[in-house]
Computed example of a mutant assay.
Amino acid sequence: MSDYLDTIARAVQSGDEKLVTQTVAEALDAGLAPEEILNKGLIPGIQALGQLFKDGEAYLPEILISTRAMRSGVGKLSPLLAGKAVAKRGTVVVGTIEGDMHDIGKNLVKLMLESNGFEVHDLGVDVPADSFVRAARELNADIVAISALLTTTMVSIPDVVKALEQAGLRNRVKVMIGGAPITRQFADEVGVEGYADDCASAVDEADRLIKSAPIG
């Protein structure tokens, strides 16, 4: 049985969409549970690629190809997982800060988080502070992830932090930021808990934030 899972993981890592779909179907026919295929085949494959990316041994095109392959496998499982309690690692609201129309980095972060078991709600680009707050409240989010690609828009990130505080959400919602001009020092200066400099690091950072102690 583990042969199916190993093949699925390797196929996801290499971005072989056809092999992923084929092997997922074979694993189901062989009696493997959908949850096992997801948690022990698909997710380990994308996690392995994420580690290679962080180590400089894989690049963005490979991330995109592999996430597409993983989605094809998840698509085969989705009807079977519907209505079942599938463990999720946390709920994340993502968006690009108000005034900024860049979305490539945000989209990659979304793909990687989803592929690693997070429930992700994408607010798009040019997102004002009150929209982040409303989504965090309505979705009971664990993390608000904010992207900024311009130095002229990154200065609006503190507005989101302040709005979360004023809404009484700051004690339970953690904030993670990233983007070309963002640094760990800036994250510390504006008082947010999380910082990621690429889409693979965002997964580790989100996981760390979920596991860390409540704010305050």
Rank of each mutant, 00 (worst) to 15 (best):
Asp3Gln: 14
Tyr4Lys: 02
Tyr4Phe: 14
Asp6Thr: 12
Ile8Gly: 07
Ala9Glu: 08
Ala11Lys: 04
Ala11Val: 02
Ala11Leu: 04
Gly15Ala: 12
Gly15Ile: 10
Asp16His: 09
Ala25Pro: 00
Ala25Met: 07
Asp29Tyr: 00
Ala30Val: 00
Leu32Phe: 01
Ala33Leu: 11
Pro34Met: 08
Leu38Met: 12
Lys40Gly: 02
Lys40His: 13
Gly41Arg: 08
Gly41Pro: 09
Pro44Tyr: 03
Leu49Lys: 08
Leu49Asp: 10
Gly50Thr: 12
Leu52Ile: 03
Pro61Asp: 12
Glu62Leu: 12
Leu64Lys: 12
Ile65Met: 14
Thr67Glu: 05
Ser72Phe: 02
Gly75Ser: 09
Lys76Ala: 11
Leu81Tyr: 00
Lys88Cys: 01
Lys88Ile: 13
Lys88Leu: 10
Lys88Tyr: 09
Ile97Cys: 04
Glu98Met: 13
Glu98Ser: 15
Met101Asn: 11
Asn107Lys: 10
Leu108Gly: 07
Val120Asn: 09
Val120Lys: 08
His121Val: 14
His121Ile: 13
Ala129Gly: 02
Ala129Trp: 01
Ser131Gly: 06
Ala141Ile: 04
Ile143Arg: 03
Ile143His: 03
Ala145Val: 07
Ser147Cys: 11
Leu149Ala: 07
Thr152Trp: 06
Thr153Phe: 05
Asp159Tyr: 07
Ala163Trp: 01
Leu164Phe: 03
Ala167Gly: 09
Ala167Thr: 09
Asn171Glu: 13
Arg172Tyr: 00
Val175Asn: 02
Arg184Gln: 15
Phe186His: 05
Ala187His: 06
Val192Gly: 02
Asp197Tyr: 13
Asp198Lys: 06
Cys199Met: 14
Ser201Cys: 07
Ala202Lys: 08
Ser212Met: 15
Ile215Val: 13
